[in-house]
Every structure is written in structure tokens, then in C-alpha cells.
Computed example of a mutant assay.
Amino acid sequence: MFKIFIVEDDKQLVTLLNEHLHKFGFDTQPVDQFDSVLEQFERYSPHLILLDVNLPKFDGYYWCRQIRKVSTCPIIFISAREGKMDQVMALENGADDYITKPFDYDIAVAKINSQLRRAYGKFASTHGDRLIDIEGLKLDVERLTLTFQKQKVEISHTEVRILEELMRRSERVVSRDRLLEKIWDDQVFVDDNTLNVYITRVRKKLMILNIEDALQTIRGQGYRLLPNWGAQS
């Protein structure tokens, strides 16, 4: 049974989420103390988190960053904030998706199931080698890490899926549509800007490893990963 951790201070919404998620066989646990979200998360060890932005004590962006230090489990923001920058900030801080309030509960469940399938189910990366190595850049699909020389950086499930596709098709252009198909169910709508945010995050992770300008944007086509870091190894 999948466990969903609900970090939301609207008690009526929490009640409705609990009732609806239980109908679909999920186990849920709402946060009870908003100054110890991380501790409750670690005790419950959920498969997915529903996280509001506006919270007592610290906002959802803060808690998303704290959770990302210890876990890569899927995080979906649920918020009344509809602005583009709010959604960008959520993704930049480590979220996997963003749902604006008020929302349709069936769509919310579809997005939850989508993230769970990508992280743990039939769409999780299970084919081929679990370690992809190109010119010393090593992607560990299971451990969610990217390593180059003696440096290692942790990455999210979504970043893994993007890098896996780019590395398996190294030096070839990968279309935006192909990346979207690989990382999201096509029956769930995704703002095109979301992919831009994740590409930016992947570039930042590469830069932490001192790999710059390897991930190229091919205007009107997609993206290409050139292994030009080989000379550094």
C-alpha cells in the first residue's frame, strides 16, 4: 500500500483528501505539527508527499528543500497560488508537480498515480544497465546519483529520467516531445514550461560536477548531450 504524507493546514481539505485517497487504497498521514514536518516525514517514510505552499511557521518551499536533503520521493505541491513563478519556484526547490486549488480530486489522484508509477511502478527505469557511464560521467539509476571523477551529486527521479534518455542517446538530438513522453503520462497535462525548469535543474547538477555547455538546446528541435567533458577525465 502506498503511503501519502499530507502537509496542508486546511483541515477541511485534509479531511476530503483523506476520504478520497482512502477510496483508492492509499494510506495517508496528515502533518500534525508544522514546526516538525521533516521529523514526521522521516518517521512515516511515505512514498509521496502532498505539500501546500502557505503553511504555519515555514512555507512549503522551505520544507521541500529540507526533505530533498534526505529523500527523492515524489513531491506534489497543492496550492491556491496560480502564478507562473510560484510553480517555477516549486519545481526549482525540488517538487515533481504542482496542482492549483481548487482542483478535481480525480485529476489529483491521476497525478499521484503518475508520479508513483514513474518512481516505483511499471514506468520506473528498469530496462538495461542500472549504471550508465559515458566518458566517466556515471548515472546510477537506482541510487539517484550522478558522478564524475571524485564528485557526486544526488538527483531527483525526474532528473534521472531526463538524463537517462539524453545519455542513452548521447550526441543525438532528443525532441521535447520525446522527453515529455518519457517523464510524464501523456494523459496528464503538463505545462511546457515545466520541462524548461527541469532542463535548467539538470544543467545546474552538471555544473556542480564542473561539466559546462554539454547539454545543448537545439532551437525548434530539442536537446543534445555532447560528451565534451572527456578531456577533463
Rank of each mutant, 00 (worst) to 15 (best):
D185M: 14
V173F: 04
S71Y: 03
D96T: 08
L225W: 09
Q40N: 06
D192G: 10
K23A: 12
R176W: 08
I155H: 02
E159K: 08
L13G: 03
D97R: 01
H47E: 07
D140R: 03
A80L: 05
E135W: 11
T100S: 09
L179M: 05
R65W: 00
F77Q: 08
E212K: 15
W63F: 12
V37C: 05
F24R: 04
E82V: 12
G121L: 08
T15R: 15
I132V: 10
I162A: 02
N196C: 04
F24W: 07
K111D: 02
L50V: 04
Q33A: 14
A110G: 14
R68G: 05
I183E: 13
I75C: 02
Y61T: 06
V37Y: 07
Y98S: 01
K84P: 01
R43P: 01
D59W: 07
F123E: 10
K69S: 11
E159P: 02
Q232L: 15
Q87E: 06
M1I: 01
G25D: 07
R118I: 15
P56L: 04
T158M: 08
I208W: 13
K152F: 03
A124N: 08
S170R: 10
D177P: 10
G60R: 05
M167S: 00
E142R: 03
T126S: 15
R224M: 13
K138F: 10
Y62W: 12
L206H: 04
Q66K: 14
T200Q: 11
K23Q: 13
V188C: 13
G222I: 00
L225D: 10
E165M: 12
G220T: 10
Q12A: 12
A90E: 03
A95N: 01
F189D: 14
I75M: 03
Q221V: 07
V197M: 09
Y44R: 06
D185R: 13
V70T: 11
Q187Y: 13
W229N: 05
L225G: 04
P46V: 01
R68P: 01
Q149Y: 06
L206W: 07
V14E: 03
Q149G: 02
V197N: 08
P56Y: 02
D106L: 07
I112G: 02
F189M: 13
D9G: 10
Q87D: 01
P56D: 09
L38K: 10
E181H: 12
V160W: 04
C73Y: 06
R201H: 11
K204P: 07
L146K: 01
D213P: 09
M85D: 15
K182D: 15
S114E: 15
P30R: 04
K101A: 00
N54A: 14
K205Q: 14
P56M: 09
Q12H: 13
L139A: 11
K23R: 14
D191C: 08
L51I: 01
F148Q: 01
I183Q: 07
E164V: 12
A124G: 04
L131I: 12
N93E: 14
L131V: 11
S36R: 13
F34V: 03
T145W: 00
L116Q: 05
N228D: 14
Q12M: 14
L50D: 01
V202Y: 00
G83H: 06
N93D: 14
L137A: 07
V7I: 11
I49W: 02
N196F: 04
Q149T: 13
D133A: 09
E154H: 14
N113D: 09
K57F: 09
D104C: 10
D10E: 10
L116I: 09
V173D: 02
K138M: 09
K11P: 01
F148K: 03
